Simulated scan of single mutants.
Amino acid sequence: MIRFDQVTKTFEHEGGKLTAVDQVNLEIKKGEIFGVIGFSGAGKSTLIRLVNQLERPTSGRVLINDQDLSALSTRELRGIRRNIGMIFQHFNLLETKTVYHNVAFPLLLAGTPKNEVKEKVEEILDFVGLKDRAKHYPDQLSGGQKQRVGIARALATSPSILLCDEATSALDPETTKSILKLLRKVRDEYNITILMITHEMNVIKKICDRVAVMEDGSVIEQDTIFNLFSNPQHPTTQKFVQSVMNDEIPASILSEVESRHIYRVTFNEGTAGKPILSSVAKKFDVDVNVLYGQITELQHIPFGNLVVEFQGNQEEILKAVNDIQQAVRIQEVKVDAS
């Protein structure tokens, strides 16, 4: 559906060149919600603007349905852009226009007959839950309502692609949850492909099917949500995952003794409900002390993450670890108790 093929984007900057996107290869499939996450300056905003050609690549190709956007004429590109909706962090609404006219604006620009505009706008406002706000102005709305107007406006031209540029960053947690629920509804009911950029890993966790992590203009890791959360490879990805999994062991616990045998045990769909730790404690001469634990859901798959301490002699602990790793992933946690 959307493909980045060795895409690089550079800008002239203070007499030199700044590489905002560096040889990126990505493929976003039709009907999926694909997230791009990175810290400020990672290049994600430039990346998303390459999709609708608000920025042109310096090298490489951006393709939509196998069409190279750089090879299109101005007229052809306008047609492609009508098929791409975009929502923004700060809503970008017309403050002097009502909710109705904000949503109608792209249709009127396209020369849509007024009776069709009315029908379409009313349908979309009902879909986003703002049918009773049609005559209101933006300054009469909450932040969440403003973003719903932004989503409605983006859907007005019946796009097949929706770009979300930090769409929830200006919203509180509860409103963010409702907007993400709405975006999933957009994907499910309209079969729209959603590409969203964010610096919030919790947003990625809640809504995305797959994710790419960017740093210094490059994609450093990409995978399904489950694989990336359960086994992040790059240190930057590990930081993002840790920001929502919250699996750091409190220093007060680590300071209690000088030497400990601490392990991280990761459970997946088939093992999250099994008594693996209690079984190994019965099987070998070891005690198991759970220091931290949680079970969450990633893409409707149970995912368990425990930090445990094994107490006993070294030989028995090693036997227990070898037995556990036949069923689940287990890694020793190196700690400094000083």
Rank of each mutant, 00 (worst) to 15 (best):
T46K: 04
I301F: 04
V219C: 07
H300I: 03
V286A: 08
S230H: 05
M214A: 06
I204W: 00
T74A: 13
A20Y: 06
C164Q: 01
Q140H: 11
V307F: 01
K44F: 12
R61I: 09
I317C: 05
S142E: 02
I37Q: 01
Y137N: 05
P250D: 07
S59A: 12
K205L: 11
T58K: 03
T198V: 07
I124D: 00
G85R: 02
S158K: 15
K283M: 13
M245N: 07
E189I: 11
P159H: 11
V7Q: 11
Q6D: 14
E116D: 14
L69T: 13
L50E: 07
D247V: 08
V335D: 04
S278W: 11
N83P: 00
K146L: 10
Y100Q: 04
V211T: 07
G43Y: 13
T271P: 05
S252D: 06
C208N: 05
H136G: 03
A156S: 12
S158M: 06
V121A: 08
V211P: 01
R133L: 06
H199I: 04
E215I: 06
V219F: 11
Q89M: 08
P250E: 06
N52H: 08
T46D: 08
I253H: 01
K17D: 12
I179H: 00
A251P: 01
R56C: 09
F310M: 07
V328A: 15
K9A: 12
P235D: 10
N202H: 13
Y263G: 02
V211N: 02
A337F: 02
T176E: 10
K185V: 00
Q299Y: 04
V62Y: 04
F226H: 12
V280R: 04
S142T: 08
G85V: 04
V265T: 05
Q6T: 06
I87H: 02
P302S: 08
G15Q: 12
L318K: 14
T10I: 11
Q222S: 14
S278R: 13
M201Q: 10
N92T: 09
T10K: 14
D285F: 00
K205E: 06
D68V: 14
G111F: 06
G144A: 10
V288A: 12
E316H: 11
F310A: 02
E27W: 06
M196R: 01
D165F: 08
I2E: 05
A327V: 13
R210S: 03
P113R: 09
V21Q: 03
S243V: 13
L26N: 10
E116A: 14
L228M: 15
L155Y: 04
T236L: 15
C208D: 03
N115Y: 12
E119P: 02
I317D: 04
D287P: 00
T237K: 00
T19G: 10
H300K: 15
E12S: 12
I301T: 14
R148K: 10
L228A: 07
T96S: 15
I317E: 03
V128D: 02
L183C: 02
I317T: 04
Q311Y: 00
I151Y: 00
V241T: 11
E248P: 00
L277M: 14
A327C: 03
M214P: 02
I207T: 02
D139S: 12
D165L: 06
I330K: 03
A152D: 02
Y100H: 09
Q89D: 08
T8A: 05
E27R: 12
E122H: 12
I151F: 00
F34R: 04
H261G: 01
E119H: 14
G150C: 10
T176Y: 09
L69W: 08
